[in-house]
Design a protein around this nucleic acid. Structure first.
Length: 759
DNA sequence: ACCTTATTTATTTTT
DNA sequence: TAAATAAGGT
C-alpha cells in the first residue's frame, strides 16, 4: 500500500467524475461537456493509477492537443502525489511524443535520430522546387494548395494511388503525383513533416510487429485528451498501441470538435463504442463554469446540430444576466462598444483585465479591437500571433543551426545559403540541388564537391566558404557549448552583422531576439545531460505561440475562437456575429457538415464565459483597409433561446432619415450579401435601442461617377457627410477618397459606394 | 546578381 | 492592409 494519503485525489469529485477516475482497466470514453471538470478527471485519474499502483509512471502515455495542456497536466498530477512519484510519465502532444519515439527508432526507417522537422513553410519550399522541376508553374499549381492536399492524404492515411483515385480537380491530381516525389525529397533531406511524425510511427508498427509489441508492453495505460480532435492516423495509433491491453481512456466532447479542416475526424469519438465494444462510457454533464443563462444559450445553439452524443448539461449556478447582443453600426463601433463594456464592468466589479476575453472568428478582426483598446489605454494581449520561433530572424538562425545537425536539410540550406547575400543566386542554387539529387548523392556531398559544380567562380568560392563554415561549426559542436557554437556561426556567417546593420527599433529588437535564442539554447542544454542542439531544434519545431505564454500579466485577452478552446473567462465578448463571418462562408453556400462545425465553434466561444457573455455584430464591416460591406446578422443569433437574449443597437447616423425608399441597394458587389434589409435576426429582442433599427435599409443609390470632383460635399449612406479629397481613374472604376466628418478618410469606388454629391 | 519600385492578389482555423 | 511577386535599372 502507498504510504501517503490518497484521499485528496478523490476528494471533491462528483459521482461521475469519481467513476471515471477509478475505472482503471479497459476502454473508457469520458464525454465531458464544457466546464465539467474534464482536466481534473484526467489528472486525478493519472494520479489514481499511480497511487493505486495500477501503473508505474513510465507505463503511462498521456496525449494532449497542445504543449500547454500537457505541461498543466503534468504539473497538476505532480501536485497530487509525493515528490518524484510521477517522474517518468510520457505526457505531451501526439506529435511531441512521437518525436521522442522516432528519435529512438529512426534508424529502422532509414533516418538518423538527428532528423529535422519540417513545418508547412519548409514543406512548401520543397514542393515549390518539385513543382518547377516537373514543369508546372508555381503560380498555377500553388505549393500551399499541394501541401494541403498531401497533408490531407497523410492525415487520412491515403496512399498516392488512393489520393489520385479520389482527386477531382487538376490540382489534386498533380498533388497526388507529386506526393511520392515529395516523400522522397523528405527522405533525402532526413526530414519529417508534421504529418510524418504520426504517420511514420504507425507504419513502423505495421512493418515491425515486435516494435509495436515493445511499446504495447511499455505503455500499459494510454490516455487521450480532446479525443474529438484526433485524425485518422491518431486513431489508428491509439488503436494499435492499446491493441493488447485495451487500456485506453479518451476524453472529449463531440460538441467541441472544431478541427475537421485539419483532418480531425469527429467520427472517432462518435463511434468509440463500436471500435471498443466493451467500452465504458461516462458522461460529465454538470457544468461548474457558467451561469444558467449562458448554458441555456449554448445548449439552444448546439441543439441545432444533428449527429451528436446525447447529453443533458445542467448547472447549480445562478441564472445570471441575459446574454447581450450588441448591434453596432460598424466594426469600429463594435470594438468601441466592447471597450465600453470592459470599462463599465470594471467600474462596478473588482474584475481584473485578465478576466475579460475578446473572441473572434478570424485573426484579421483583432486589429479593430486592438485599435480601440490602445486608444483607451487598456492593456491587452493577443494569443496566436507570431510566436517567438516564427519570427524571421529566429527562423533564419535556426536554419543555420539545423544545417549543423542535419547537413542534408535542403529547406534550411535554401533559406540561408544566400542570406546574407553571398552571390549564390537562384541559378546556382538550382545547379547545386540538381547535383545533390543524382542517385547516391545528397546535399552534403554536393557541398563537399562544390569545386566541381558548373557555377560561376564567384558563386563557387562563396559556396566553398559556406560549406567550410558549416563543417567547422559542426565539428565545434563536439567540444563547445551549443549556444557558443550558435553565436560563433551567426557571427562568422555574417548573419549577425546583417542584423546589426539595422539600427531601427525593430532592428534592435531582432538583435535582442537572437540573443534570447542563444539564451534559450543554453538553458535547454543546461537542463539535462541528454539535451543537445538536436533535441532543442526538435522541440522548438513543435512550439506554438500558446506555449510561449506570459499569461501572468493582467491584460485583456484577444484571440480566435479556436484558440479559446479549453480556457475560461468571467466576461467574454464574441465579435463579428455576422453571416459569412460566423459562420464563416467563402462562397455562396456552405455544406451542412461545415456549418455544424462553425456552430460548434460558436458553442465553444459561448461556453468560455463564466458570468457574462456579450455578442457583437457590426452592420457595416470594412475589409482590408478601404472597402466596406453590409452584413446580415449571423444565423446563429436566431438559434439562441430568446428568453436569455437581450439586444442593444447603436443608432447609426444615417438612420435618422430612414423610412424613405424601400428599394434596396442591391448588387453582387456586396460580398456579404447586403441586398436585403435585414429583419430576420435579433427581432426577438426584449429591449431594442431604437425602434427603427431593424428597418434600416440600404436605400442610398450610388451617384453618377462623373459628379465626383475634388472638394465636393458628399453624403454616404453609412459614413454620413464628408468631402472629396482625391479622385482617381474614370468611369465606373473611379476611386474616390473622401474625408468624412465622423469616420475619417475612406477610399471608395464611385459607382459602387452608396454615396452621392450633395448641395 | 541584386536592389528598388510597382503591382498584384488574397486574406480561417494550426499540432 | 500587407505580403509576395514581377519588372526594371544598376
Amino acid at each position: 500500500m502507498p504510504e501517503f494519503d490518497t484521499k485528496p485525489i478523490l476528494a471533491g469529485l462528483n459521482d461521475r467524475q469519481r467513476e471515471a477516475v477509478q475505472t482503471t482497466e479497459g476502454p473508457l470514453l469520458v464525454v465531458a461537456g464544457p466546464g465539467s471538470g474534464k482536466t481534473r478527471v484526467l489528472t486525478c485519474r493519472i494520479a489514481w493509477l499511480l497511487a493505486s499502483e495500477a501503473a508505474r509512471p513510465y507505463q503511462i502515455l498521456a496525449l494532449t492537443f497542445t504543449n500547454k495542456a500537457a505541461r498543466e497536466m503534468r504539473e497538476r498530477v505532480e501536485k497530487l502525489l509525493p515528490d518524484g512519484m510521477a517522474k517518468g510519465m510520457w505526457v505531451g502532444t501526439f506529435h511531441a511524443q512521437m518525436v521522442r519515439l522516432l528519435r529512438m527508432e529512426a534508424s529502422h526507417l532509414g533516418f538518423t535520430s538527428d532528423f529535422t522537422i519540417y513545418d508547412t513553410g519548409d514543406s512548401e519550399r520543397i514542393l515549390k522546387q518539385l513543382i518547377k522541376e516537373y514543369g508546372y508553374d508555381p503560380k498555377v499549381i500553388k505549393p500551399r494548395t499541394v501541401q494541403n492536399y498531401i497533408s490531407g492524404a497523410k492525415n487520412a492515411r491515403e496512399s498516392s494511388d488512393q489520393m489520385n483515385a479520389r482527386a477531382e480537380s487538376k490540382q489534386a491530381k498533380i498533388a497526388a503525383n507529386l506526393y511520392v516525389h515529395y516523400n522522397a525529397a523528405l527522405q533525402a533531406a532526413n526530414a519529417f513533416d508534421f504529418d510524418d511524425l504520426l504517420l511514420k510511427p504507425l507504419e513502423l508498427f505495421e512493418q515491425q510487429p515486435e516494435t509495436l509489441q515493445k511499446y504495447q508492453q511499455k505503455w500499459s495505460h494510454v490516455l487521450i485528451d480532446e479525443y474529438q480532435d484526433t485524425n485518422r492516423v491518431q486513431y489508428l495509433l491509439a488503436r494499435s498501441l492499446t491493441g493488447a491491453h485495451r487500456n485506453l481512456c479518451v476524453v472529449g466532447d463531440d460538441a467541441q470538435s472544431i478541427y475537421a479542416f485539419r483532418g480531425a475526424d469527429i467520427q472517432n469519438i462518435l463511434s468509440f463504442k463500436e471500435d471498443f465494444e466493451e467500452a465504458k462510457i461516462v458522461r460529465l454533464e454538470q457544468n461548474y463554469r457558467s451561469t444558467r443563462n449562458i448554458l441555456k444559450a449554448a445548449d439552444s445553439v448546439i441543439a441545432e446540430n444533428s449527429n451528436q452524443i446525447k447529453k443533458t448539461l445542467w448547472t447549480d449556478n445562478e441564472a445570471g444576466q441575459p446574454i447581450t447582443l450588441i448591434q453596432a453600426a460598424s466594426d469600429r463601433d463594435e470594438a468601441n462598444r466592447a471597450v465600453d463594456i470592459i470599462r463599465k464592468e470594471r467600474g462596478r466589479t473588482n474584475l481584473k483585465l485578465q478576466d475579460f476575453a475578446i473572441l473572434y472568428r478570424t485573426n484579421a478582426q483583432s486589429r479593430t479591437f486592438e485599435d480601440a483598446l490602445r486608444k483607451r489605454g487598456i492593456r491587452y494581449r493577443i494569443v496566436g500571433g507570431l510566436s517567438f520561433y516564427e519570427r524571421k530572424e529566429i527562423r533564419d538562425a535556426i536554419a543555420y543551426l539545423r544545417l549543423l545537425v542535419n547537413p542534408n536539410d535542403v529547406a534550411s540550406f535554401q533559406r540561408v545559403v544566400n542570406y546574407p547575400a553571398r552571390g549564390i543566386g537562384i541559378r546556382s542554387q538550382q545547379v547545386i540541388l540538381e547535383y545533390a539529387r543524382q542517385p547516391g548523392y545528397d546535399l552534403s556531398t554536393a557541398l563537399r564537391e562544390s569545386e566541381r559544380l558548373p557555377i560561376s567562380s564567384r558563386a563557387k568560392n562563396s559556396l566553398t566558404e559556406f560549406a567550410t563554415l558549416i563543417r567547422n561549426h559542426t565539428e565545434k559542436l563536439e567540444t563547445m557549448e551549443p549556444s557558443e557554437v550558435a553565436v560563433s556561426l551567426c557571427q562568422q556567417s555574417g548573419f549577425m552583422r546583417e542584423l546589426e546593420s539595422d539600427e531601427t527599433p525593430s532592428g534592435l529588437s531582432r538583435q535582442n531576439n537572437l540573443h534570447e535564442l542563444f539564451q534559450a539554447i543554453q538553458s535547454h542544454t543546461d537542463e539535462d545531460a541528454s539535451h543537445t542542439l538536436s533535441s532543442y531544434l526538435q522541440i522548438v519545431a513543435l512550439m506554438t505561440d500558446a506555449d510561449t505564454d506570459k499569461s501572468s500579466a493582467d491584460r485583456v485577452v484577444l484571440m480566435t475562437l479556436h484558440a479559446s478552446k479549453g480556457l475560461e473567462f468571467q466576461v467574454v465578448f464574441i465579435g463579428g456575429l455576422e453571416d459569412k463571418l460566423l459562420p464563416y462562408i467563402r462562397g455562396e453556400e456552405i455544406d451542412p457538415a461545415s456549418l455544424e462545425e462553425e456552430r460548434r465553434l460558436f458553442y465553444v466561444g459561448i461556453t468560455r464565459a463564466k458570468s457574462r457573455l456579450y455578442l457583437g455584430r457590426a452592420k457595416v464591416r470594412s475589409r482590408y483597409g478601404g472597402e466596406f460591406n453590409y452584413t446580415q446578422p449571423s444565423r446563429f443569433i436566431d438559434e439562441i433561446d430568446p428568453s436569455v437574449l437581450s439586444t442593444r443597437s447603436t443608432r447609426a447616423p444615417w438612420q435618422h432619415r430612414s423610412g424613405s425608399s424601400k428599394k434596396s441597394y442591391r448588387g453582387s458587389r456586396n460580398r456579404f450579401g447586403g441586398s436585403r434589409p435585414s429583419n430576420s435576426g435579433g427581432n426577438r429582442s426584449q429591449r431594442s435601442g431604437s425602434g427603427s433599427s431593424r428597418k434600416m435599409g440600404n436605400n442610398l443609390r450610388p451617384g453618377d461617377p462623373s459628379t465626383f470632383k475634388v472638394g465636393a460635399q458628399v453624403q454616404h449612406q453609412n459614413y454620413g457627410k464628408g468631402w472629396i479629397t482625391h479622385v482617381e481613374g474614370g468611369g465606373s472604376a473611379t476611386k474616390v477618397t473622401v474625408e468624412f466628418n465622423n469616420f475619417g478618410q475612406k477610399q471608395l469606388r464611385a459607382g459602387m459606394a452608396p454615396m452621392r454629391v450633395i448641395g
